[in-house]
Design a protein around this nucleic acid. Structure first.
Length: 376
RNA sequence: GGGGAGAUACCAAAGUGGCCAACUGGGGCAGACUGUAAAUCUGCUGGCGCACGCCUUCGUAGGUUCGAAUCCUGCUCUCCCCA
């Protein structure tokens, strides 16, 4: 993997770049649709490629390890072949599941003991086997195994958690460096900066990560309950330390507004379940604002879902029709909403790139952050 | 013509003297969702104030009772069975 920094905004810390992988080049800033189990829920690969033009998608180590399991993925020749996706893939390490499945796991310095959410069976994740699993899945970019503490964690807990994450990180790197990719394409491993909402911890974590000189770096443990302003402050603290020559990935973020604010602070990569999950639940993100398509006000609105939208769904179908699909519990509704939202997110970052290249990013961003957060 | 059953809020359907402004489901209306245990979850759904409360509801008109959706009488309507 290679990162090229093509331009830096003069008024903000926004950057324009590209990540070159063996499965293709990813322009940055970029949004990466989440396909946890090897599927972006409700959206076909054809739509991801031709309508949404996703440059890279995510998979999840924890979910794929449990099902279909490593044997099937290995036999298939890796996740790219198994899922018939020839563009880049990034896998999350399962660190987030340490957080979101907290009732079903026990942490030790060795790793995390889990119970499967599927059948209750017992499993163990360590920094080493998570690296091995991600070798087997075969994503272009893989993530270090970390602990993601909740947004309201105390300083004591946050510090202890960061200690653990940093010890795990060293082991991740050792294992990653002593193993080889399995399918003939190269893999990069990104470490993750933790530290909750405590600037001194974030600073220390960023310094640790920066010194490791990995191919890219991630910021985790944000948008887990803390106010957005605090998140922005943490991004500033961390990005002042992370090397400018490496891509910066803000994990799990976020709303269109969050993404624009983070781009302005020097973040290059994003992923979030919002466009798909909220889309399935009837929430549309558009360049004019946020729509709850189930609301009665759209009942007779026969205008396109999003006249400025980039996908076939946006101009072909009306709001009234999409509302009807949701109200009728037709599966096409959540599918179209997901396609629209992902199309919008990809449009948003593409437009941000354009504005950075034109030197007009800040003005555009200030206008857009207000608009995209408006409730229509 | 004879016999039987029933009328409860938008719909369906509980409730058969006080714990009933009325279970529950549907429908409707709104909200939540940020490295996906989510095509999921939550709230509201007689009126007014919208906390406490007050007012008007259980086909309809009367009656019994301290008190009625619940008991009695008349009326209206609906459904089922037999001719």
């Amino acid at each position: 993997m290679q990162f090229r920094l093509l331009a830096s905004d003069t008024q903000t810390n926004a950057r324009l770049g590209e990540i070159v992988t063996d499965h293709g080049t990813i322009p940055t800033p970029i949004f990466m649709p989440v396909g946890t189990v090897g599927s972006v829920k409700g959206v076909s690969h054809r739509e991801l490629e031709y309508d949404i033009d996703a440059k890279i998608i995510l998979g999840n180590t924890y979910h794929l390890y449990l099902r279909p399991g490593l044997e099937v993925i290995k036999q298939a020749g890796g996740l790219h072949k198994f899922s018939s996706w020839d563009r880049p893939i990034l896998t999350d390490s399962g660190g987030y599941q340490v957080f979101s499945l907290a009732e079903n796991r026990k942490l030790t310095s060795e790793g995390a003991h889990f119970r499967s959410h599927i059948d209750g069976s017992k499993h163990f994740f360590s920094p080493e086997n998570v690296m091995d699993i991600q070798r087997t899945i075969g994503a272009d970019i893989i993530m270090a195994f970390d602990e993601c503490p909740p947004g309201d964690a105390s300083f004591e807990y946050a510090k202890k958690s960061l200690d653990l994450t940093e010890r795990w990180l060293i082991r991740c790197i050792d294992r990653f460096n002593s193993t080889e990719p399995l399918y003939g394409h190269s893999q990069a491993m990104f470490p993750i900066v933790q530290g909750c909402v405590y600037p001194e911890l974030r600073k220390r974590a960023a310094e640790t990560v920066a010194a490791l000189n990995c191919e890219g770096n991630a910021i985790g443990g944000l948008s887990v309950g803390e106010p957005a302003e605090v998140m922005y402050e943490m991004i500033e603290v961390v990005n002042a330390i992370l090397p400018a020559s490496k891509p910066r990935y803000l994990m799990g973020v976020g709303t269109p507004e969050n993404i624009l604010e983070a781009i302005a602070r020097g973040v290059d990569m994003f992923d979030c379940v919002m466009p798909t999950r909220n889309g399935r639940n009837g929430m549309l993100f558009t360049s004019e604002g946020i729509i709850n398509i189930r609301n009665k006000k759209w009942e007779n609105d026969f205008s396109p879902i999003d006249p400025n939208g980039t996908t076939f769904a946006d101009r072909r179908y009306s709001k009234a029709y999409l509302r009807h699909l949701f109200v009728s519990s037709e599966m096409l509704g959540p599918q179209l909403a997901s396609i629209h939202n992902l199309g919008f997110y990809l449009w948003l970052v593409a437009e941000a790139r354009l504005q950075i290249a034109n030197g007009t990013f800040e003005e555009w961003k200030n206008k857009m952050t207000k608009r995209v957060a408006t409730r229509l």
